[in-house]
């Protein structure tokens, strides 16, 4: 794939957001909030019937999309705007469009606009990212 302004990066799709991932992340985040772990609490709070994915997991999906597209690169910066929740069993897809390509010393800095979309509700995170890729 040629990296140029306007190029759409290959999407990264998660077919089904897993409650098991939420369980793994809860102690790592030191976040015992039961809306990620207990459906009865989600119902009691009037937030629906499915567990709510921790927000940082959604950011990680976007990061993984970027790193899959630029495996030798490193993320320099991101802006993440949280628009909606992601729920267990959701199918989500991270997409990005290149908005800038700049040479910076021995690396190329690729800027892009991205979105994480849930099939059921459209955009859940929107934002921008800059990835530094070593020149070969």
């Amino acid at each position: 794939m040629k990296i140029e302004i306007g190029a759409e990066l290959p999407a990264y799709r998660i077919e089904s957001v897993s409650p098991e991932t939420m369980k793994v992340w809860a102690p790592i985040l030191r976040d015992p909030n039961p809306i990620h772990l207990d459906r009865e609490v989600v119902k009691a709070k009037g937030l629906g019937e499915r567990l709510i994915n921790q927000g940082p997991i959604n950011v990680a999906y976007v990061m993984d999309m970027l790193m899959r597209n630029f495996p030798q690169g490193r993320i320099v910066s991101m802006t993440n705007r949280f628009v909606d929740n992601v729920y267990e069993d959701d199918a989500v897809e991270a997409t990005a469009t290149v908005t800038g390509v700049e040479q910076a010393g021995d690396e190329t800095r690729v800027s892009c606009d991205f979105a994480l979309k849930a099939d059921e509700r459209s955009v859940v995170i929107s934002g921008t990212a800059v990835v530094a890729v070593p020149n070969t």
Partner: peptide, 24 residues
């Protein structure tokens, strides 16, 4: 390693952490 595996990605063999650790 657990976090990476929960996301379906391999941990970096050279010791780079998943970048989401900025937040964590």
């Amino acid at each position: 390693r657990d976090l990476c595996e929960s996301l379906g990605v391999a941990p970096d063999p050279e010791g780079k952490a998943h970048p989401i650790y900025y937040y964590i």
